[in-house]
């Protein structure tokens, strides 16, 4: 069981959260010309890094807030958690 420190609620077990995927993916800006390739990169293409990975989770059985987690995908070590709008250094 992973233990995730929700920035709003504190340390909680993983079963309270649901996973939302790679948090580094950015939706293309709609007010300018967007190529098919940019849409592909947003919708489908993922780096799926081995090692440090910034990802979205939702505290679905808690405060229901979306949060960001920096986690190692090989060891599952969680380095840091962020509020959804928090800048990641």
């Amino acid at each position: 069981m992973l233990y995730i420190k929700c920035p709003h609620c504190g340390m909680r077990p993983q079963i309270e959260f649901s996973y939302g995927g790679d948090a580094s993916v950015k939706r293309p800006e709609l007010n300018k010309e967007i190529s098919d390739q940019e849409w592909d990169d947003f919708v489908y293409n993922r780096k799926s890094l081995r090692g440090k990975h910034l990802e979205l989770w939702q505290h679905i059985s808690g405060c229901r807030q979306w949060i960001k987690i920096e986690r190692d995908t090989a060891t599952h070590e969680i380095f840091k958690t962020f509020k959804a709008d928090e800048e990641v250094a």
Partner: peptide, 11 residues
């Protein structure tokens, strides 16, 4: 969740 661990989690 993304994983390269080759081992699982109990939940």
């Amino acid at each position: 969740y993304n994983s390269y661990a080759q081992r699982g989690n109990l939940p």
